[in-house]
């Protein structure tokens, strides 16, 4: 019921977000353009300029922010469940910093458009995967994949890659702005092709994770307990880790490292619907989408025509809101 409500809210938000921008376009025109596109022509009441703005500029960007938000929210649920720790996010094992390092290197060396538009996504995805594979190998012990080693190695890698990125930034005066805007994350220039790719990763990832929600729930008791309840712990961990890595590195590849969503959204949703991961996964998907959608609206309109990287906004919005939430919980006595 609540899920239907927030789905409706998400839909409404998308329409509103589409109407906001340097060019004012009325609601009915937006709905008409969309209806026309999906096969219900109701007579042309818009200009071709408006159609281009909605269909080629705003719609892919708005949808991109929703899909990437959903990915990061879901990946956050996976990360927190996997590490049994409410204060980790999907970037903790070095995905974002490895990708950032790869992109920085690529830009500085002048390969940024070697493979056309997909150079940056490809490089960042490859670097993220490389880091994860090394960390994954490191964390294998005699019987189990050690989540502690995974976490520690991830943090170490994170620092290493961040340091390397800083090093590159320090010596690349002319490209600093370009690299920084990638590192902070934005939806600038999102295209339909980007959207399709991200969507194709997001949907199955979320669905699979939903079906592994029960495993994640039980794993809260630790590997041995989970195994004695019947969970094939090693297999489940591997699958969940792969899904998390795919979701996160795809998001990072197209939009840079947008922070805070993966940390705050699962947390926020847990306060709303409880710890059951089968609820958390869909709720966090929608919640993450909503958060990034509105953060992006602000990012592109607040000091229009200038754009602020959206990652800055997620942190600016999410931080105080979360503190508010914790204070509320504390008052009602649910938090000690």
């Amino acid at each position: 019921m609540v899920l239907i409500f927030i789905f409706f809210f998400l839909f409404l938000s998308i329409i509103i977000a589409l109407s906001i921008g340097s060019v004012q376009i009325e609601f009915f025109k937006i709905i008409a353009i969309i209806l026309d596109q999906i096969g219900f022509p109701i007579g042309t009441v818009w200009t071709s300029g408006e159609q281009v703005i909605i269909l080629e500029l705003r719609l892919p960007r708005v949808l991109m922010s929703v899909v990437v938000g959903a990915m990061l929210g879901v990946a956050g649920v996976a990360a927190q469940g996997l590490f049994r720790n409410p204060i980790v996010d999907p970037y903790i094992i070095g995905i974002a910093s490895a990708a950032g390092c790869g992109v920085s290197l690529c830009v500085v060396l002048g390969f940024a458009s070697l493979l056309g538009l997909f150079t940056i996504p490809l490089v960042s995805f490859l670097f993220a995967m490389l880091a994860i594979i090394v960390i994954y190998k490191l964390s294998q012990t005699r019987y189990r994949m050690s989540m502690t080693v995974l976490l520690l190695a991830g943090i170490a890698f994170s620092f290493f890659f961040s340091a390397f990125t800083s090093f590159i930034l320090y010596f690349s005066e002319d490209k600093v702005h370009y690299i920084l805007s990638y590192l902070m994350g934005s939806f600038w220039g999102a295209s339909w092709v980007d959207l399709y790719i991200v969507f194709i990763v997001m949907v199955p990832g979320t669905i699979i994770l939903y079906f592994y929600g029960r495993d994640l729930n039980i794993m809260v008791f630790g590997d041995d307990n989970a195994q004695s309840i019947g969970v094939n712990v090693e297999q489940s961990k591997r699958i969940i880790l792969i899904i998390m890595t795919l979701l996160t590195s795809t998001a990072v590849a197209f939009c840079g490292s947008i922070g805070f969503v993966g940390l705050i959204i699962p947390h926020f949703m847990r306060l709303l619907v409880g710890s059951d991961n089968r609820k958390l996964v869909p709720y966090s998907a929608v919640g993450g989408g909503l958060l990034l959608l509105w953060a992006d609206v602000l990012a592109r309109n607040l000091i229009s025509p200038l754009e602020i990287p959206v990652g800055i906004f997620t942190a600016l919005l999410g931080g105080p809101f979360f503190v508010y939430l914790v204070v509320q919980k504390k008052k009602s006595g649910e938090l000690m």
Binding site: Q80, G81, R84, N85, P86, N217, V220, F221, G222, D224, N225, Q227, S228, I229, G230, V231, N232, V233, R270, G274, S275, D276
Partner: peptide, 23 residues
Amino acid sequence: KISDIAKKIAVVEQSTSIDFDYS
């Protein structure tokens, strides 16, 4: 298989603490 063992043997381990609260 792990699930077959769990159908035959249930285990209660020494200490139990959880970081996320479940009902």
